[in-house]
Design a protein around this nucleic acid. Structure first.
Lengths: 166, 166
DNA sequence: AGAGATGCCATGGGATTTCATGGGAAGCAA
DNA sequence: TTGCTTCCCATGAAATCCCATGGCATCTCT
């Protein structure tokens, strides 16, 4: 079973703050939770980061363990380590996917990113980012604007050759 | 077995969104899927890209792995890398060719490119592009317009020399 | 060569399952 | 009580499974 997310999906957020985790993503969370077994609930970690983040990031248990190992190897007390600990441990919550395949996003977190009636999930390697559909569209425009060397109509893969030069 | 697509084909899209993958293309997908074996289903990746794409791009597993390796070699956090990840990871889906040689295009993707009752497949190296027949005709006209240095009636191969000059 | 058989292929459809989503009611806390 | 949670059930739509058909090309047998 794959351990990486791929794709994106828009889902409804109901009045109780529940969001259905699209089935293809749910399977990744299940496969990447060492304690998961049929009938039980897959665990995951919701990172909401610092004030300026307008998205949430959902990590599988395995991905989170890797990150924590990475942090543990950094010099204790270094500014960088403190920063990472602040984000990934301080501004993170444990959560689980319920029997109906849904995740309940606490009100605080919904408010932080401005979620009301629908949420946009998009894969980011071994995590899933959650945005309001509008915030994501905005982010995507910004992303494109940051790569002026890609002419309209050009194949994005032409960017790969840049890697070998610079 | 060849690993590159050649040619184009128009096929029907039925009410369930199923499209028959022309046999010559199907064999490429099978040959380029490392885990494929007789009786099993060939895997592939459907990239639908950002808002403005009005086509889908079907990649073999091997082609997609190459792209992902290329992306992985780019500097983490660079604008170009983020853009490519957004397209090829965020706006892509895993899929497979069913026992009847068909691919099911999810409703969302059909709507995105305006697909209704028939689809036009055209080879693009190690991927296959899918358009509505109308959109493809339009694209073909635009393609020519983007290369003004080719005079009407001139041999397109004359363009090859441009590559050497830069 | 011609007739018939065989196989591959594109296409269609019914039946079943999965999935996203909505809502009621019980549990719990302020 | 009043508002959140948590658990359980309901439903329509979409996706999946499985089987069927007709056309075209190739092969085989006489």
């Amino acid at each position: 079973m794959a351990r990486r997310f791929r794709g994106s999906e828009e889902v409804k957020v109901d009045a109780k703050g529940r969001v259905s985790i699209p089935a293809k993503f749910r399977r990744i969370f299940e496969a990447s939770d060492p304690d998961f077994e049929a009938g039980k609930r897959a665990q995951l970690v919701i990172v909401h980061g610092t004030r300026d983040w307008n998205w949430l990031q959902l990590f599988t248990i395995e991905a989170m363990e890797e990150i924590e190992d990475g942090i543990a190897r950094m010099p204790r007390g270094s500014a960088a380590r403190n920063l990472l600990e602040n984000i990934y441990q301080g501004h993170a919550d444990e959560a689980e996917i319920d029997g109906d395949g849904r995740l309940v996003l606490p009100q605080k977190l919904r408010e932080k990113i401005g979620l009301t009636d629908s949420a946009f999930f998009i894969s980011a390697g071994d995590s899933l980012k959650v945005w309001t559909p509008e915030a994501h569209a905005e982010e995507e425009r910004a992303l494109e604007a940051r790569v002026p060397e890609l002419e309209p109509g050009a194949d994005p893969l032409s960017l790969l050759s840049l890697a070998e030069e610079g």
